[in-house]
Nucleic acid binder design. Structure first.
Lengths: 344, 344
DNA sequence: CCTGTCGGCTAACTCGATTTAGCACGGCGG
DNA sequence: CCGCCGTGCTAAATCGAGTTAGCCGACAGG
């Protein structure tokens, strides 16, 4: 039981020194002079007794608990959000830190309550995370604590921020198609995600579009069309492309995520168009779906794991403190991109 | 800052009482007599000053921290594992508890280290979780602490256990097909998941098969064939059904999960067989895929959220302490099941 | 022999709560 | 008037560390 835990006092008594001396030895402080022999004796007895410092007690005194609070809007909506958490947990573990995970469901009251609960337990630092890139202001409550923004960007709250490099991801996607020989007939499915609830689009959508357009323009061309979709789910991708195919025959399709691409595949199949022989498809996110589709989907990966890892690194090694860190989104080349039909 | 936090002593001083009295009032203990007027005065000053008890200090004294440790083998492999965590977090929050999440990657040394870290921080109780149902023994380190097993079953470690009711799920799937009129030509894709690494199959596989066979036998029939798949991913479902279609024409297919069903859809499509007109398909898990497929897939849902919720409930309200709790797996009826072709 | 310094330690306080033991006072019975 | 009891509170110990101030002895310098 807890009561039988070995305490610092036990070690000190057994080693025949004062608690003070034991404390200095075991917390590795050198500014107090302890004879080498004594030092070793304390270390040995500590090891022998299996002493582990009670971090609750230490936390009370020093206000350092070795616990990071992860405040997330949602945990489970995007399947790969778990990867963010995994990256954070792994990195925290490497630094002997644990992570309190909390989900706010985007409810300010719940958020406030959860942060309070964490403050009541003297959490050292906070990860303020969003499961898709967006603008979001942490509550004032967090103002005086170390915070890293993960996958979200704040204007009035100043903190180091880690986001995917969506602009370069746009470049990457466009470049992949250009390299395969596509210049015309490149349609974008999903666009900036410009809807009633998200007027002007979402961050990822805007930045990806920006990257795509820049890269295409550099090559002297541009998207043949951009089709906005209200929801980025297969059904809307299916409908967008079904409509498109009624009018014209695309050479390549850039889908704003894999779910849209899934629907796009379904629509192409119904029109007896083969991927990639007739139409090339490239996408973003690189979720499981991408490798499950037939043919396997080329996708620009969201670096979820790296986001989590980088954010915790920023918290534990503040010297890294750049204010805005853009994590690269690597291209996962699979089988859905080929030279345009007219080339073969 | 932390140093400016209001302490119990501040409240006591302002209210003109001793810390003892303030403590008794604020922790709501009635075994010590405090005059109603004094009581109110303390409550008022506490509210006025915005007093929040320092739970680290309380934890040191009482050994109760209000923190639950969640030890999971993996966090991110199955997309819906996040739902387990969400269920646990929500329920913990309702009980004013926070959750330390840790991932062991099935590594005993890492597991031991993480549990130690949690014990060093006086965690109240543990959720020992697995992301797919399996036999797994918690380490001896946990023996003297409150533990609930989540989605895993131990033989030598005695603790309340929460698992999905896979046997009844098997009944449910079989019953759905029987109700639609299928009796013959029902093939099972995936079977018990009997492979080299998992000889005898996995728990979910075995129990689902048991349920399926029992229910079919009650109706005087049985599976036309059971095809084991080494991996439960789309590609293997695709191959299993491609092979099957070389020999015979199934009436209905039971897939052991949605990913297999995805591959099954792809194979059926290639053979120009329509779902559900030519072949009915039913599956397990009810992941996102199920609703994305065309036609939408009928699936028996894994109650991830409920698993997490139930497990935390068992921890916080031990009187519920049944030793093995099987959480129902509800049927999500969609469009992939219809009467057999010969009926229409 | 006296003073100063330095190495090597310890006593005692602190963090912010909970909890045990017991004090002071008023009223009441005898 | 004394003793007893119940009410209403407080002093002080406690949890397990970290931290400050300072003691003690040896040794060197004057």
């Amino acid at each position: 039981m807890q009561s039988s835990r070995v305490t610092l006092a036990d070690v000190a008594r057994k080693a025949g020194v004062s608690r003070t001396a034991a404390s200095f030895v075991l917390s590795g402080r050198t500014d107090m002079r302890i004879a080498a022999a004594t030092r070793q004796r304390v270390l040995d007895t500590a090891a022998e007794l299996g002493y582990r410092p009670n971090l609750t007690a230490r936390g009370l005194r020093t206000n350092v608990t070795g616990v990071i609070g992860l405040i997330s809007d949602t945990i489970a909506t995007t399947p790969y959000a778990g990867e963010v958490i995994r990256g954070a947990l792994d990195t925290a573990r490497e630094h002997d830190r644990l992570v309190l995970v909390a989900e706010t469901s985007d409810d300010h009251e719940i958020e406030h309550g959860l942060i309070q609960q964490m403050l009541d337990r003297s959490v050292d630092a906070f990860l303020y995370a969003s499961m898709f890139t967006q603008e979001r202001e942490p509550p004032a409550l967090l103002r005086d604590y170390p915070v890293v923004l993960l996958n979200c960007m704040a204007t009035s709250f100043s903190a180091p921020t880690v986001v995917p490099d969506e602009i370069r991801a746009g470049h990457t996607a466009a470049r992949a198609l250009l390299d395969a020989g596509h210049t015309d007939g490149i349609h974008v499915i999903g666009g900036r995600h410009d809807t009633v609830t998200t007027p002007g689009g979402v961050v990822a959508g805007r930045e990806r579009m920006r990257g795509i357009e820049t890269e295409l323009r550099k090559a002297g061309t541009g998207p043949a069309s951009v089709i906005e979709c209200a929801w980025h789910v297969p059904d809307h991708g299916y409908r967008a492309v079904s409509d498109l195919l009624g009018e014209r025959r695309p050479s390549a399709l850039i889908c704003m995520n894999d779910r849209l691409a899934f629907g796009v595949y379904q629509a192409l199949q119904e029109h007896h168009l083969r991927v990639p022989e007739d139409v090339s498809v490239i996408s973003f996110d690189d979720s499981d779906l991408a490798s499950w589709l037939r043919p396997a989907l080329t996708s620009v990966a969201l670096p979820h794991y790296e986001l989590g890892r980088t954010a915790v690194t920023l918290l534990t090694e503040p010297e890294h403190g750049r204010s805005l860190l853009r994590v690269p989104m690597p291209l996962r080349s699979r089988a859905s991109v080929a030279p345009p039909a007219s080339f073969s």
